[in-house]
Design a protein around this nucleic acid. Structure first.
Lengths: 275, 275
DNA sequence: GGGCGATACTTTACGCCATAAGGAGATGCT
DNA sequence: AGCATCTCCTTATGGCGTAAAGTATCGCCC
């Protein structure tokens, strides 16, 4: 089952996401904390990565840390907030931005995460590929409702990275907003499709192509007039061919190409060659 | 919480979606069925529309029909399949295609659902607006995992309608697939954003603009270096302005414009004026 | 018309879930 | 030493989906 994130107390959630100012902490009575928000988030991600979203319960997370479910509530207000944190932590892989601790490093101004690119098309493509890959590494994130932005640091950093990649286009703010929305949603949606195809294949032990073939056969059986009702769909499908796993990559490439062409069409003048 | 659809027995699900051939039914013993799959799906949609996805339980649906939760299992294999059916039924609003019963009407070949348009840009825009509106009428659909296509008749009809709108572009199959994916995901994603903004406003009684302002203020408070860490984001936000609800419509329009321009850029020759 | 098998629907029960409430033990300041 | 404070536990509540088994109702066939 999917879970509706962003439902938690926004105040607490935001504070946790941005690494709350932390009361002095020095000179506090009581036993030292044996856990940390960070450890809990990591455990949550580990559970979700390994067992899937459906298996992510407070009990399961606690168990992985050698605690009961209730122990977690000392650190995290509830499951919804934990999901917000997990979501943002995963997105941090994109930019190499580590959420709460800016701590150590003297140099390393900003871990780049994404290599610099010559042309903005390459930069945007690299961004999209990175996001796509990130979603596929943690497919459960796609089941966290994208509704209600969580506004965690990693999410904003990812957005900033995309804006940086798009800067050479000189797009007007309005069009820029549209482009950003379209790009993000496209990558997310396509990742969901890919992730699910993989999931189905893994769960049933049936290869993607076979599953699809079986499905199509059954469909024709149930709707004998399929080709007449959906002529264009039928035609498009017949040209589809190709290896099953490749078809997602192709859809990714071609869909992205459409978006990039659309962005290019909106450039006011000629783009500067570098960011 | 969101729910993972497409998890039910694919066989049963498909059969129900396409209006299973129905065993003879004449001359069957036992009490006459007091319910129907259709009624159950309608009740489910009513519950979800009124109370939200979180309140959608088998008990709640049964109660609305004056039955217990278990009574539903005579008609529907489980909750997952019910969700598939609800999803497809909602999408049927798009094309006016009524899923199982082609029954009555002598004329009325195919309810058009969407008005014919002169230029493909208008046709695609109309399609996108219709899908967007449909999602906003039933926001809970956006919490049904888009992963794993359900392949119901309405979903396919919606796809076919989009292909019809895009036909005048003469796009090559590969690019066409990319364009379809990008368009669908964009509309869905943006609808999710809009729906959630509305949901937050309704739940908290705070207007969108106020909520956003409060959130931003808190954010700056938590991350004082916000403007330095996210300069482009800050700049973009400052140009944002505008009424809150309008901003979604604007993002919709501009994002769609990007997509349409991208599609136009891929046309092999000049488009034929009509479909 | 009497019985019998099929069907619709109910009650009950199981094992999950998130989390509210309250108690036990550890800790460090005064 | 006393005590407030904090972590973590046990227990309990009210939900969930659905398996299992019981009951009532219908229609066919003898």
């Amino acid at each position: 089952m999917t879970v509706y994130a962003g439902q938690g107390d926004a105040h607490r959630s935001l504070a946790l996401l941005w690494g709350a100012p932390e009361e002095p902490r020095a000179g506090r009575s009581g036993p030292k904390p044996g856990l940390s928000v960070d450890a809990i988030v990591s455990a949550g991600i580990a559970v979700a990565d390994a067992e899937g979203m459906a298996a992510l319960s407070m009990r399961a997370v606690g168990e992985r840390l050698g605690r009961t479910a209730m122990a977690l509530y000392t650190y995290v207000p509830g499951k919804a907030e934990l999901l917000d944190l997990m979501h943002d932590r995963v997105l941090a892989e994109l930019t190499g931005e580590l959420p709460p601790e800016p701590a150590a490093g003297p140099a390393a101004e900003h871990a780049p995460g994404l290599p610099p690119a010559e042309h903005w098309r390459d930069a945007v493509t690299a961004w999209a590929e990175a996001l796509y890959a990130c979603y596929l590494r943690h497919p459960w994130v796609l089941q966290v409702s994208q509704a209600r932005p969580v506004l965690g640091p990693a999410e904003l950093a990812a957005m900033e990275a995309l804006l940086r990649a798009l800067r050479p286009t000189g797009l007007a703010p309005r069009r820029l907003r549209g482009a950003v929305a379209a790009l993000w949603q496209f990558v997310r949606g396509l990742a969901a499709t890919t992730a699910d195809a993989r999931g189905a294949a893994a769960a049933t032990g049936v290869a993607d192509a076979d599953w699809w073939a079986a499905r199509s056969a059954r469909l024709v059986e149930l709707a004998p007039d399929f080709a007449e009702r959906f002529p264009l769909l039928t035609a498009l499908q017949s040209t589809g061919g190709g290896a099953p796993e490749d078809s997602h990559r192709e859809a990714f490439r071609t869909g992205l190409a459409v978006l990039l062409d659309g962005i290019a069409a909106g450039e006011p003048e000629e783009p500067s060659p570098t960011s």
